[in-house]
Simulated scan of single mutants.
Amino acid sequence: MSPAKKSVDASTLKKEVAEGVDLMVVRELIGGIYFGKPRGFGTNENGDEIGFNTEVYATYEVVFFIQLAFN
């Protein structure tokens, strides 16, 4: 069985939807939400408990990731 055939069979999409799709997902795991500050827990204006995390990226990080993905 070819690798493409195995991928189609492993998809949660219907076979007729997934066949012929060529897709690659590139995920960033070196910055942003993983290292952003401030982060923590608090209370909002309605008195609800909340959690928050800040996503911060520098231009060079975004450019690096985009170039890597497109190459």
Results as ranks from 00 to 15, higher is better:
residue 20 G to W: 03
residue 65 F to D: 06
residue 53 N to I: 10
residue 34 Y to L: 12
residue 26 V to H: 08
residue 13 L to P: 11
residue 54 T to V: 04
residue 54 T to H: 00
residue 35 F to M: 08
residue 33 I to E: 02
residue 41 F to P: 00
residue 42 G to I: 10
residue 33 I to K: 13
residue 18 A to W: 13
residue 9 D to C: 09
residue 30 I to C: 07
residue 57 Y to H: 15
residue 52 F to E: 01
residue 49 E to W: 00
residue 22 D to K: 04
residue 11 S to M: 09
residue 71 N to Y: 02
residue 3 P to N: 07
residue 24 M to Q: 11
residue 69 A to R: 02
residue 37 K to M: 14
residue 18 A to G: 04
residue 39 R to F: 07
residue 17 V to I: 14
residue 69 A to T: 13
residue 63 V to H: 04
residue 46 N to G: 08
residue 40 G to R: 04
residue 13 L to H: 06
residue 19 E to D: 05
residue 52 F to H: 12
residue 4 A to G: 08
residue 47 G to F: 09
residue 62 V to D: 01
residue 39 R to W: 02
residue 15 K to M: 01
residue 12 T to S: 12
residue 10 A to V: 00
residue 55 E to H: 05
residue 1 M to V: 08
residue 70 F to C: 07
residue 51 G to S: 10
residue 3 P to T: 05
residue 28 E to Y: 14
residue 23 L to W: 04
residue 62 V to H: 03
residue 57 Y to F: 15
residue 58 A to N: 11
residue 8 V to E: 10
residue 24 M to V: 09
residue 25 V to A: 11
residue 35 F to A: 10
residue 33 I to D: 00
residue 32 G to Y: 00
residue 58 A to T: 14
residue 37 K to E: 15
residue 25 V to G: 06
residue 56 V to Y: 09
residue 67 Q to S: 06
residue 69 A to N: 03
residue 1 M to S: 14
residue 48 D to P: 10
residue 21 V to E: 08
residue 17 V to S: 03
residue 47 G to P: 04
residue 23 L to Y: 07
residue 70 F to A: 05
residue 41 F to I: 09
residue 4 A to H: 07
residue 24 M to P: 00
residue 4 A to D: 09
residue 37 K to I: 14
residue 3 P to A: 07
residue 49 E to V: 13
residue 31 G to W: 02
residue 49 E to N: 13
residue 11 S to A: 14
residue 23 L to M: 11
residue 65 F to V: 05
residue 13 L to I: 03
residue 6 K to C: 01
residue 31 G to M: 06
residue 22 D to M: 00
residue 8 V to F: 06
residue 58 A to K: 15
residue 59 T to C: 07
residue 64 F to Y: 06
residue 34 Y to D: 01
residue 50 I to T: 14
residue 8 V to W: 11
residue 6 K to R: 12
residue 52 F to S: 08
residue 35 F to I: 14
residue 37 K to C: 13
residue 43 T to E: 04
residue 54 T to N: 00
residue 63 V to E: 15
residue 45 E to D: 14
residue 59 T to Q: 13
residue 13 L to V: 05
residue 35 F to D: 15
residue 30 I to E: 13
residue 51 G to F: 10
residue 50 I to Y: 02
residue 70 F to H: 01
residue 29 L to I: 08
residue 4 A to S: 13
residue 56 V to S: 10
residue 62 V to A: 10
residue 6 K to S: 05
residue 30 I to H: 06
residue 20 G to R: 09
residue 33 I to P: 11
residue 31 G to H: 11
residue 1 M to F: 05
residue 58 A to H: 12
residue 49 E to Y: 02
residue 57 Y to K: 08
residue 61 E to I: 02
residue 41 F to S: 08
residue 23 L to K: 06
residue 53 N to R: 14
residue 70 F to Q: 04
residue 60 Y to P: 14
residue 41 F to A: 10
residue 53 N to V: 12
residue 21 V to P: 01
residue 64 F to M: 12
residue 54 T to Y: 00
residue 8 V to D: 05
residue 54 T to P: 02
residue 55 E to M: 13
residue 50 I to F: 01
residue 44 N to W: 03
residue 54 T to S: 11
residue 27 R to W: 00
residue 12 T to K: 06
residue 10 A to Q: 09
residue 10 A to P: 00
residue 65 F to P: 05
residue 45 E to M: 11
residue 19 E to P: 15
residue 38 P to K: 00
residue 16 E to T: 15
residue 45 E to P: 11
residue 28 E to G: 08
residue 34 Y to H: 09
residue 62 V to Y: 02
residue 64 F to A: 15
residue 69 A to Q: 02
residue 36 G to H: 04
